[in-house]
Amino acid sequence: MMTFTLWDILRNLLLAARWTVVLSLVSFIGGGLLGMALLYLRIGKARAGRMFVLGYVELFQGTPLLMQLFLAFFGLGLFGIDVPAWLAAGLALILWTAAFLVEIWRGCVESVARGQWEASASLGMGYVQQMRYVILPQAVRVAVPPTVGFSVQVVKGTALTSIIGFVELSKAGTVVTNATFEPFTVYGLVALIYFALCWPLSKSSQILERKLNVAHRNH
């Protein structure tokens, strides 16, 4: 029987962790861009657009991410479309991330006082100008901490993609366990790596929150 050193295990896990990082980045950036587009519809004047985004958010927030991954992976397969695991994983996570970010951001836009809309309107600004120069600069300040905080959820969400066969950190953990028969060591390391990825994010969310609040008070 082959023996594995701790370094063998860790090295393999770290190699797979790269894919966790890549998938997280793709999901977060893709979800962020899609989220912005959805936000534009969600707070816009067209009723159809608002209703569409409302339905979208309900759908993706109201079903487990795992089901969404299954549907993306197996569902499209039923129609004869061969979806590789990485594509299904990326697609589902982008859609899922966008559904949460758009609601976080909508809350931030709506937290800007009504008087700001009225004052800018009475100075003659149009909707786009109000958004661009008055509302969004204030909303962004409110949005940064919860957005960074949500990125932690995205990183942890990528673990589910192991079930459809995408080899990231969790999947690598299973594979390595099957080879080494040392589940406690392996999953312990997996957990540590996840923690090392997530903790700086949640910490920076806290720091940003404090910083931006102070900035808001005193500049």
Binding site: A119, S120, V134
Partner: peptide, 17 residues
């Protein structure tokens, strides 16, 4: 219309940023 007539509010409504 709003270029002809300005408005001042009870709550000032300055842009805080």
């Amino acid at each position: 219309l709003r270029l002809k007539v300005g408005m001042i509010f009870q709550q000032f409504n300055l842009f805080p940023h």
